[in-house]
């Protein structure tokens, strides 16, 4: 039989509920929460109170991560820096005779190129740092990706940089700026020949 006893993901994001409830003007909504009922109409679960902040259009980066309870949470950041890191090795070869003008003696090989990002957030307070620690130590993180070239929206796997995060400040206790650095999990594929 189909077993209902399981872990579930309840569609809870603005993009999810906008499809489920298209008649609601979501751009005017400030906060919302969901209550889930079973087949008999009994309430089963109530989600967090979701507060709508600046959207994905204004340079927001949303990192989804595997939390300590084995499921997925997400944190919103603002992207402040993007770098393109390239590493390669060099090789030398003799030139041919007669000389071919376009032929080079020194060449580059084993080129490894990837994007890395620095993002910040000020949306979370000191008491929420305990939850954010789950992002910092998560083994699996994805960045929400808006589909291009006709592809559906999806997630791209990323790798968080090892770092020491300040989770308790002595001064300015109520203004928290958390900075996270990450790179894409799949580096660019380069042509070898």
């Amino acid at each position: 039989m189909i077993s209902t006893e399981s872990a579930y993901h309840i569609p809870d994001g603005t993009k999810n509920v906008a499809t489920l409830f298209p008649s609601i003007s979501w751009k005017d909504v400030e906060e919302y929460y969901l209550v889930i009922n079973n087949l008999e109409g009994d309430p089963i679960a109530t989600t967090c109170n979701n507060k709508i902040v600046g959207g994905i259009e204004d340079n927001t980066v949303r990192l989804h991560f595997l939390n300590s309870l084995g499921m997925i949470d997400a944190v919103n950041f603002c992207q402040v820096q993007e770098d393109y890191d390239i590493k390669s090795d060099n090789s030398e070869k003799p030139l041919s005779y007669p000389l071919i003008k376009s032929d080079g003696g020194s060449a580059r090989y084993n080129i490894r190129a990837n994007e890395s990002y620095k993002v910040i957030t000020t949306l979370y307070s000191e008491e929420q740092m305990k939850w954010l620690k789950e992002l910092f130590s998560s083994p699996a993180v994805w960045v929400e990706w808006k589909g291009t070239q006709g592809q559906a929206d999806d997630y791209l796997p990323v790798v968080l940089a090892d770092a020491k995060y300040t989770t308790l400040k002595i001064e300015e206790r109520y203004t928290y700026q958390v900075t996270v650095e990450y790179r894409l999990s799949n580096q660019d594929i380069t042509i070898r020949n």
Partner: peptide, 9 residues
Amino acid sequence: PIGLSESDY
């Protein structure tokens, strides 16, 4: 916190 047009569960 969640932005407009963002996926979440």
